[in-house]
Amino acid sequence: MAAAAAAGAGPEMVRGQVFDVGPRYTNLSYIGEGAYGMVCSAYDNVNKVRVAIKKISPFEHQTYCQRTLREIKILLRFRHENIIGINDIIRAPTIEQMKDVYIVQDLMETDLYKLLKTQHLSNDHICYFLYQILRGLKYIHSANVLHRDLKPSNLLLNTTCDLKICDFGLARVADPDHDHTGFLTEYVATRWYRAPEIMLNSKGYTKSIDIWSVGCILAEMLSNRPIFPGKHYLDQLNHILGILGSPSQEDLNCIINLKARNYLLSLPHKNKVPWNRLFPNADSKALDLLDKMLTFNPHKRIEVEQALAHPYLEQYYDPSDEPIAEAPFKFDMELDDLPKEKLKELIFEETARFQPGYRS
């Protein structure tokens, strides 16, 4: 834990890192770190609560700039109880001085990944967590956004079992017609939660990839272990087919990539493993919904509104309290091709509203 900075004593240090967030945020305490930044909790002297502050230093890398800009653009436009918001952003007053960006968010005690390492969940908890994931996802999908990296560590939890989806750095506007060349190379989302079509096709992607990830998360809540822990690309596919069985001819016809289709045709026939054999203690309604989410063919996979209306979630289902976005989200430009200098300018502009004396 960093010592509390005395008023006016300059930035606090946390594990050798400068955290320049005073005077409003003090009493910093280390939480963890990701690929390009550290997260601390801090005391907000204005709202009198502890908050989470993520320090991001992305400006050396085009990919990190892209992810940072995506996350900020999306989260500043989203407003939903099951999606983490941005409360404040701290950065230098000029673009030349801006080396880091500090993002202030609600402090959540833990995440689903940490929880599943230590606790076996009751059916009631599984049901409530799944409902909140789908409630947040309904809003995301209504904005025409794909999260693309749903996994237990991106689901934040607090002691009252509130759940918030975080990390929109890989999110995209849904565009089933656009052929994202190089899709697989830039697709760094965790393999275990990846839909089979991501490994088999490169053309376009749809909201059904997020539903697949939610199915993987439900299976993990039922058993405290990942359902498809593939060691590499082909191993991942083999794990999936080992449980779902061989795809039907109709399902194979959806695979545009001939090499991928021929690979699947070359494999020995596998039978589907019954879900109640894998999860003998699970609620039968939970397994019915799991089956509809972990469907090989993305066109037959359940959609988020149908999933919310499934009998497993009937005690929570309330369409009048499951809000959607006001308007579909649009990125003005494809960020993939922009140089990091341009992305830095866009991050600077996007964060201006939090600067003292800002006038829109």
Rank of each mutant, 00 (worst) to 15 (best):
A309V: 07
F331T: 01
I211V: 10
F168Q: 11
A260W: 02
M221I: 14
D210F: 05
F59T: 12
I256M: 04
S41V: 13
K138S: 08
L107V: 10
A9K: 05
I84W: 03
A52H: 03
A171K: 05
I198Y: 03
L75R: 13
Y193R: 10
F19M: 05
G136F: 05
L137M: 12
N47P: 00
C40D: 02
A7I: 01
C166W: 00
I256Y: 08
I90P: 01
I211K: 13
A307S: 14
F331A: 01
Y43M: 00
K138Q: 12
N47I: 15
L308H: 03
Q97S: 11
I256E: 10
K73C: 05
I255C: 13
N238V: 05
L244C: 02
Y36N: 15
I256G: 06
H125M: 03
F331P: 06
R15F: 09
Y128M: 03
G32C: 14
R91N: 13
W212Y: 10
N262L: 04
Q315R: 12
N257E: 09
K54T: 11
L28W: 02
R301I: 14
R50H: 02
D337H: 11
K151T: 13
C166S: 15
L278D: 03
P196A: 08
P339Y: 07
K300P: 03
S266R: 15
N45F: 10
I95R: 02
L107F: 10
K138E: 11
Q97I: 02
S223Q: 11
G204E: 12
A260F: 03
N257A: 07
M199I: 14
S202M: 09
Y312S: 00
Y64P: 14
I89R: 04
L264T: 11
C40S: 14
N87S: 03
N87D: 00
D149P: 02
K48A: 13
H147C: 11
L241A: 05
E12Q: 11
P328N: 04
K292R: 07
L218F: 06
S213M: 04
D235Y: 14
H178L: 15
D235V: 14
L150F: 07
F59E: 11
I255L: 08
S360G: 09
K259R: 12
L290T: 02
H299G: 11
H141Q: 11
G169V: 14
F78Y: 15
V39C: 08
L170Y: 02
G32S: 12
I86W: 15
P311L: 13
I140S: 11
I165T: 09
D100G: 12
K292N: 13
Y30Q: 03
S248M: 08
I227L: 12
D20T: 02
V39I: 04
G22Q: 06
Q97Y: 04
E350G: 00
S142Y: 05
L346K: 11
T295M: 02
Y64H: 15
P298Q: 02
Q105S: 10
L234C: 06
H178K: 10
D149Q: 04
P298G: 01
R15T: 10
L107W: 04
T351G: 09
L287M: 14
G245A: 11
R77I: 03
L267V: 10
N82A: 08
Y43V: 13
E305C: 03
A260V: 13
G136M: 03
A309E: 06
D321E: 13
P23H: 14
A307N: 02
F183M: 08
D20Q: 03
S29H: 01
N154A: 06
L28V: 06
G204C: 11
F168I: 14
I89N: 13
G85P: 05
K342A: 01
G32F: 02
I133D: 07
V173G: 11
Y30V: 02
Y131R: 03
G85N: 01
Y205I: 07
P328W: 02
D100S: 11
L313G: 09
G204Q: 07
I217S: 13
C40Y: 14
M98R: 06
G32V: 14
H120Y: 13
T181A: 00
Y317F: 15
K330E: 10
L69N: 01
N87I: 15
I31Y: 07
Q17F: 01
V214D: 04
A307I: 00
R24Y: 03
Q62S: 14
N224G: 09
H141R: 01
K340L: 11
N158R: 09
H180T: 09
R194E: 13
K272H: 01
L200F: 12
H310P: 11
S248P: 05
F348A: 08
D167L: 01
M221P: 08
T68H: 13
I126S: 11
A286F: 03
A195R: 09
L222S: 01
H141E: 07
L75K: 07
A352E: 10
H239A: 06
S153P: 02
Q236A: 07
S320M: 11
E81R: 01
S202W: 06
D111T: 08
G85R: 06
H180D: 10
D177V: 14
L146A: 09
K231F: 06
E314Q: 11
A309I: 08
N224F: 08
V273R: 05
L264R: 00
R77T: 03
Y358L: 10
S41L: 10
L267K: 05
E350Y: 06
N154Y: 14
N253Q: 05
R79W: 03
I140F: 14
A42Q: 01
K272N: 14
I302S: 00
A42Y: 03
T94K: 07
Y36K: 14
T185Q: 09
A189W: 09
Y316M: 03
Q119N: 09
W212G: 09
N27R: 10
L76S: 11
L121G: 07
L294R: 00
D251P: 04
Y233V: 02
T118H: 04
M108H: 01
D100H: 08
H239K: 07
I103V: 00
H61N: 14
Q132T: 10
S153E: 03
E71T: 11
L237N: 06
A3G: 03
A309R: 02
S202K: 09
F279E: 07
K164W: 02
S320C: 07
P268N: 06
H180M: 06
T185K: 10
D44G: 00
Y36S: 15
H141M: 09
D20L: 10
E71S: 13
H180R: 04
M199P: 06
Q236L: 14
A35R: 11
G37W: 14
L156F: 04
G85I: 12
K270H: 06
Y358H: 12
L107G: 01
V188K: 09
K300S: 04
V18N: 08
Y128N: 14
D167E: 11
N262Q: 04
R301H: 00
K114E: 00
T110E: 06
K285N: 15
F331R: 00
D149I: 06
P280S: 10
H239V: 00
D332Y: 15
E197I: 06
N238R: 02
L69W: 00
V21Y: 07
M38G: 13
E220T: 01
L130F: 12
D321R: 04
A325V: 13
P339V: 11
R359M: 15
S248D: 07
V14H: 04
P311D: 07
F78R: 09
T190Y: 05
D332F: 08
R225P: 11
C127Q: 15
P93A: 07
E186I: 03
F59V: 15
E12T: 03
I211C: 11
I126T: 00
N257C: 08
P356M: 06
L155D: 05
L69K: 02
K330V: 04
L313D: 11
V49Q: 09
K344R: 13
L170C: 05
W212M: 05
P23C: 00
S266D: 08
H80Q: 14
I256T: 00
Y187M: 02
N253W: 09
D149W: 08
C40N: 10
H269I: 09
D179R: 10
G245Y: 04
R77E: 00
A282K: 02
H80D: 06
D235S: 06
E250W: 05
L346R: 04
A4D: 12
L150T: 03
E322W: 04
E334M: 00
G242W: 00
Q97N: 01
Q315H: 12
L346S: 08
P152S: 12
L346I: 05
L134H: 02
R353H: 07
L222K: 04
E33C: 00
L76V: 00
D283E: 15
L290S: 02
H180Y: 11
W192N: 04
H120L: 15
Y128I: 05
N224I: 15
C254W: 08
L241V: 09
M333N: 11
A9V: 11
S208Y: 14
T110Y: 12
R148G: 07
I227Y: 04
E220G: 00
N47F: 11
S213G: 01
K151M: 14
G230K: 00
T181H: 10
E341Y: 07
P298W: 06
H125L: 14
Q105M: 05
V173M: 11
I324L: 13
L264P: 12
P328K: 05
M38V: 15
R135A: 08
T26M: 06
T110K: 06
T190N: 12
Y43N: 14
V46E: 08
